[in-house]
Design a protein around this nucleic acid. Sequence first.
DNA 1: GGGTTGCATGGTCGGCAAGG
DNA 2: CCTTGCCGACCATGCAACCC
Length: 200
Amino acid sequence: MMMSVNSTIMESTADDFEKTVGERVRALRMRRGLTLDQLAEASGVSRAMISRIERAEASPTAALLARLCSALGVSLSVFFAEEGGVADPLMRRARQPVWRDPESGYLRRAVSPPGTGSGTDIVEVEFPPQAHVRFPGRPTGRSQTQHVWVFEGVIELTVGETVHRLEAGDCLFMNVGDVHAYHNPTDAPARYAVVIALGS
DNA sequence: GGGTTGCATGGTCGGCAAGG
DNA sequence: CCTTGCCGACCATGCAACCC
């Protein structure tokens, strides 16, 4: 299925990927006038780790990258999309940035066009069988909400203390800042969309 | 003060042997 | 042959010392 196309693209860009992430992190940090120390404190990631990520000596996991993006005030999709440059209202599938979490193997596709000024981001996720991803809560997080809409397979979504089992067609609303975790309890990959509403 | 690097630590994964 | 447990290798991460 489409995974094969994506993985081919991933292979070809894998070498540059860490470099791109590092450059993006550094650029966003500089733009906000933050030092490594300040970003480390805001994100909960040590400044040594941030330094290594910026210099492409380490590849961050999804959870770690999410914390950095949160501290930098951008969503993950904005983080990946901005490298594209010019704002174009049409985002062809071939140009949509794809990212693979080294920890869980999940594949994240930034679907919505960047730079449109829209307060909404749409992300498509391919979630491998039996995979786990956990996002730590952000006590000082600004108001950011999201809908998780499942297309195929099953996802167990833990929000706070509650575990929601989502099947094809199900849609869950939640605050991004809450502690949440994704788990695919089946032997088949799951596919879902995340629609993120950015806080003001 | 800001950024980099050496080193230790904890977790995960694959290989391998023993037991059923 | 399959499962289970052990062990070593590897990797991400953070602390602290170091350099500029």
